[in-house]
Simulated assay, not measured.
Amino acid sequence: MSGNRWIWFGLVFVLLYIPAVIYDVVVSDRGVVAQVVLVVLLVAYAAGWLIAPKFFWGSDSENFNTALALGLTVLGLVVVYSLGMSYAGLMVYVMSSTAVVLKPLRAILIDGTVLVLLAGTMYLEQDLAIDGAQLGTLLSLSLGMLAVGRMIRANMALSAAQDEIAALARTEERSRLARDLHDVLGHSLTTITLKAGVARRLLESSSTDRALEEIREVEQLTRQALSDVRTTVSGYREVSLSAEMVGARAALRAAEVEADLPHAVDNVRPELQGVFGYVLREAITNVLRHAAATRVSVRLGDTWLEVWDNGRGTGVGTPGTGLRGLGERLAPHGGRVVAGPLPDGGYRLRAEAGETA
């Protein structure tokens, strides 16, 4: 409940109680000074009813809210003791506010103390008689508003949790999009660059027919990359390990790199086919970009994939965007990526999942 709504709730109590009590004060046989003082106290108490919620619901400090509730409670007790115990019902709003705003233990301590003070005073001043109706009303309303306060805090916590979940979902979606675009464009543009270079060299050597073949493949790759980007943005892109193996073979051939690749991927567990397709794509892209290798070998197991090249072994140190993305993809499968240069030269990337991780 917001402070503005609580003000309307308080206004009901002000209109119900305060004018009638002021009238009683004015027509009583008290002295003028006493009447003025009581009227001022009543107006201040009513203003507190209306102003305090703005601070209650606008503050995140439990100590501040406790101090404010105590101040308003003390003012209310001063008013009640000045008017007499028959006006104990004036405490209903401040006790209700305390029960709603403060945590249960503090609310129970404050409201419980008020009830004990009122009951004790009634017992001593009214010939050992206690107004059970008024005290019962105050007690029942305090307990009811205590439950309302807990519900309000639970709803606020739920709303905050929903906002956090939504923020996390947006962050995850941005990460997915960045990861997929990196995988799609990195591999496709690298292959297109290589094939365009081959076509240029063929044209320079007057091998027009082979150059045209390479350009046709560049056109096909460009269209495929555009389709991949569109499906990535829409969130429905799927990667096939067998298709990536075919693409890797073509990309390595265009770069004149000797490829030792498996002809079948059936031995890889079905749930790992997609993620290993991303691993193979990233590994081959890195070989073509950075390794300056002349030979690449790929090996597969049911829960692992390994890519080796005889290049210059760059990449040791902090992982790049691609390797971090692969780690994120393997994490749901209990997997990891291990990559680094080999002692005898070259570079190896190994992805493992499941029990072998």
Rank of each mutant, 00 (worst) to 15 (best):
T231N: 10
R5F: 07
R329G: 01
E256H: 11
D260G: 03
A196M: 14
S96R: 01
V239W: 10
E173V: 00
L252H: 06
L280C: 10
E256S: 14
A199N: 03
R223W: 07
F55D: 00
V218D: 10
G71I: 02
S140G: 00
R106K: 15
I152G: 01
R5Q: 05
M1L: 10
K54F: 10
R350M: 10
I18S: 03
G76H: 09
L326V: 05
Y23D: 03
A357N: 15
D180E: 12
Q224T: 12
L50W: 06
N65P: 03
L117K: 07
I110L: 15
N310V: 05
V218S: 12
H290I: 08
E282D: 13
E244M: 14
Q224E: 13
N267S: 13
M85D: 15
G58F: 11
E62T: 14
N4Y: 06
T321V: 15
R253H: 10
L323C: 02
A339N: 02
L77F: 06
G345W: 10
V275Q: 00
T303L: 08
S175E: 15
G313R: 11
L75Y: 00
A264F: 12
G149K: 00
G322L: 04
I7G: 00
V12Q: 04
A154E: 11
Y87F: 15
S97P: 04
A211Q: 03
L146P: 07
W8D: 08
R350E: 08
G149R: 00
G136D: 02
D131L: 02
E173A: 15
V337L: 15
A107M: 11
G31F: 07
Y347C: 10
Y23V: 07
M95A: 07
R336H: 09
L168R: 14
R200V: 13
D127M: 02
G71Q: 05
S159Y: 04
A251E: 02
F9S: 11
V21G: 01
H263S: 15
A292W: 11
G311L: 09
R295V: 00
H187V: 08
Q126I: 00
V79S: 07
G317I: 12
L272K: 03
W304K: 02
N4I: 08
L118H: 06
R253T: 11
S61K: 11
V116E: 06
E352L: 15
L241A: 08
I7S: 00
G247I: 06
A291K: 09
T121H: 13
G48W: 02
L177T: 10
D309T: 05
I51K: 03
F55P: 01
S140L: 12
L102M: 10
V229G: 03
T121F: 10
S140H: 00
A20P: 00
S227M: 03
G197A: 09
S207H: 15
L128N: 12
G84I: 11
R253E: 14
V239M: 14
L141P: 00
L185G: 05
G340F: 12
S28I: 07
L168D: 13
N310Q: 05
Y123N: 04
I192A: 04
E244L: 10
S297I: 00
A67Y: 12
Y236P: 01
V246P: 00
P53A: 08
W8H: 09
L342D: 12
L38D: 14
G112M: 10
H187C: 03
H182G: 09
V257Q: 02
A47R: 06
P332S: 07
S82V: 04
L189F: 11
A225F: 03
E238Q: 13
L11S: 08
T314S: 13
G58I: 06
K195Q: 13
A351H: 05
G345Y: 07
